[in-house]
Structures are given as structure tokens and as C-alpha cells.
């Protein structure tokens, strides 16, 4: 099997008294597409956000290409890493949000080249080449000069994917990328994600799109109550789920 890119060990996360992640172990290998499903509130977003340290894990650790992300265990205590180290780690992980979070004061192209220019210090001309190439890849070359508010939800999300790809990340994290979209716009975003998967991108995708999970996922993770209840290849999770809770969840979302 390919080398592991993300290794999550004993990950726990609490918000005050509320324990949202209760001990997650998960390894994602290079080129793998891991799809995370589960009921609302089960901790899917929190898990994803712990991977790039948008949330600070309360216990356990997340290794990204062998490095601990955001904090290190020193003498039994979690010590934050220098911001610079964390920034560099995040630069190698792309994230796509449910509500796109495009920068509204920048055009589509400016959104895409912002991080390459500001973080990677890429010359602007070169970054624009890259940006246009990426916009073409998500089918939006003609929208380069458009501000996000003039784009449809599906177009905005595709720009957001291009923006994340512009940092040439080693893994892409998707948090319900199609949940905020009108139904007729879901397909275009899923298509872009599928192309990305076909190109060999390592992806962790939280989604309610079971069709995508089944067709594109290499492995499906079912989460409930802050724990991974069951995981396996899509055929197994959808065909013969082992746990009662998985069956209940699937019967709800598939009908």
C-alpha cells in the first residue's frame, strides 16, 4: 500500500464539557479518497478541522507526512508549534468549505493566486498562469475577472477548489462541499472532485452525497457520537454494513 500521509491517533476534542471526538484513529494513504459520512453532530467537521488545526485537539495527535500538526506532545503536555511551522503545514493541505468562503473583495483569479503570491512568493505573472490553468481545470476560465458575488454557488465552490489547489497541496480536505448548493449545481462540483480523485489527489471528503461516496470513495468512514463506528470499502459499507447504527443511518439517507 502507498505511504501514509495522514495518521490520526487517539484524537479527542472537547468544546468545554462537550466531548465531540472521543478517540479517533485513522490513516489516510497517498492517493486515497476517504469519504466520511454520519449523522449531523457526529463530529465529522470537527475531525476534518482538527487535521489542519483549525480546531485544536484536546488529546491524541495528528501526523501529516510524519510531522505532528499544530502541537507536539512534550512531557505529557500538548505544546503549540511555532505559528510559522503550522502555517507551512497548512499550506500543504487544501481545504474546501461548505460555504465556499471565497474572498469577496477579490476576483476569481485573485482568489486563486492570493496564497501563491503572498505565501509562496510566486511572481505574479507565473501565479496568473497557474491560476488560469486551474480555473480552466474547474471549467471557469471565462470567469477569471468576476467577483464571487456574481458567480453561482457551484461556480464559487469550483473557484474555491482551484484556490486550494493553487498551493499544490498533498491532501485536500472537503467539508460538505455541496451541502450549500442548489440541487442542480451539485453535479458540477462533484464532477470536479471526481476528476481530482482520478488525477490521484489524496482526499478526505465529508459529504452526504452517497452516490459520490460509493463511486469515488476508496474507503468510507461512518462516524457517530464522536467515534468511527465502521469503516471499509464502499461496497461493504453500502452493501453489507455490519453495525446497526450504520444500517439505520444509511436507510435514512438512501430513502
Amino acid at each position: 500500500m502507498a505511504e501514509p500521509i495522514i495518521v490520526i491517533e487517539g484524537l479527542k476534542k472537547s468544546f468545554g464539557k462537550l466531548e465531540v471526538l472521543k478517540g479517533i484513529d485513522l490513516t489516510v494513504h497517498r492517493g486515497e479518497v476517504v469519504v466520511v459520512i454520519g449523522p449531523s453532530g457526529s463530529g465529522k467537521s470537527t475531525l476534518l478541522r482538527c487535521i489542519n488545526f483549525l480546531e485544536q485537539p484536546t488529546a491524541g495527535r495528528v501526523l501529516f507526512q510524519g510531522e505532528e500538526v499544530g502541537q507536539r506532545l512534550v512531557d505529557g503536555r500538548l505544546v503549540p508549534l511555532p505559528e510559522k511551522v503550522l502555517d507551512a503545514q497548512r499550506a500543504r493541505m487544501g481545504m474546501v468549505f461548505q460555504r465556499f468562503n471565497l474572498f469577496p473583495h477579490m476576483t476569481a483569479l485573485e482568489n486563486v493566486i492570493e496564497a501563491p503570491v503572498q505565501v509562496r512568493k510566486m511572481p505574479r505573472a507565473e501565479a496568473e498562469q497557474l491560476g488560469l490553468r486551474l480555473l480552466r481545470r474547474v471549467g471557469l476560465a471565462d470567469k477569471a475577472g468576476q467577483y464571487p458575488n456574481f458567480l453561482s454557488g457551484g461556480q464559487q465552490q469550483r473557484v474555491a477548489i482551484a484556490r486550494a489547489l493553487a498551493m499544490e497541496p498533498d491532501v485536500m480536505l472537503f467539508d460538505e462541499p455541496t451541502s450549500a448548493l442548489d440541487p442542480e449545481l451539485v453535479g458540477e462540483v462533484l464532477q470536479v472532485m471526481q476528476d481530482l480523485a482520478n488525477d490521484g489527489m489524496t482526499m478526505v471528503v465529508v459529504t452526504h452525497e452517497m452516490g459520490f461516496a460509493r463511486e469515488v470513495g476508496d474507503r468510507v468512514i461512518f462516524m457517530d457520537g464522536g467515534l468511527i463506528v465502521e469503516e471499509g470499502p464502499p461496497e461493504q459499507i453500502f452493501g453489507e454494513p455490519r453495525h446497526q447504527r450504520t444500517r439505520e443511518f444509511l436507510s435514512k439517507v438512501l430513502h
Binding site: L102, F103, V119, M167
Partner: peptide, 16 residues
């Protein structure tokens, strides 16, 4: 809040 999160997730520092 998503604006700061999107920027940070791209590797931008807080100040940037």
C-alpha cells in the same frame, strides 16, 4: 469567521 479560516487554511499567517 470563515474568511479567516479560509485564509489560514491556505497557509497565510494571522497578520497576512
Amino acid at each position: 469567521r470563515g474568511q479567516m479560516e479560509a485564509a489560514r487554511s491556505l497557509g497565510m499567517s494571522y497578520g497576512l
